[in-house]
Amino acid sequence: MMKFIYMMASPPHFYRLAGKWLPWLSGITLLLLAAGLYGGLIYAPTDYQQGESYRIIFIHVPAAWMSLFIYIAMAIAGAIGLIWRIKLAETVAVCSAPIGAGFTLLALITGSMWGKPMWGAWWVWDARLTSELLLLFLYLGVMSLYSAIPDKRVASRAVALLALVGVVNIPIIHYSVEWWNTLHQGPTVTKFDKPSIDVRMLIPLMVMAVAFKVYYVWALFLRVRVELLERERNTQWVKELLKMNKG
């Protein structure tokens, strides 16, 4: 069993496999995104309270989900890399960080775009926005730690460790920020009460969430392929690959 996993996770095998999957991943992502956008912008009805501004939800909420999901995926991949010394897992952890940071930034920007018409301010120290901001700092820490250590093998193990420490801290940070928020901010901040959401809004939301997940795999595979090439530049399989490309 382990032997099979090691074979599957060997860089040349994964490089080729990922290459075969890329067209499928891009196709599925684009289809799902198109469906989600149609559903979100045209099919879903106008919200009776927030008007059209609520349509930001179809970007904002899936992006916020992804920001957490990718951090957890990064920590799991890092743990696998640390325990079983699988190079591919380390690479996956490292390559996840910029994608996750992108989604976190997206969630923050769309959150403030939504906050302006709803709360009347670009930024409110709302619990969820604040912990999202801290999550962005955690991602940036991972990324700059990786770029600061010259030996990439060591760097990816350091990143894996940091991601594990971070993932233990995320719930603690989240709940402390929530506590801080409820105690500091009076009831003046109007939080949207979440009534049961209309099915015609829920379906596009879910489609967008799935689209983002597939997109993550797509973007991840692209990054992992570059990283593998760079790390394995002196191995036989890369040389063979280059010869094939030339010929």
Binding site: L134, F137, L138, L140, G141, S144, L145, A148, I149, A158, L161, L162, V165, G166, N169, I172, I173, S176, V177, W179, W180, L183
Partner: peptide
Amino acid sequence: LTVGLKRGGILLSLLVLPLYVPVLIFATN
């Protein structure tokens, strides 16, 4: 994590300060 690096200063603050937030919140609160 950063002891082997020549210039770890700002990187250190980026790594550490988000993790310090819960202590700050509960102590001041």
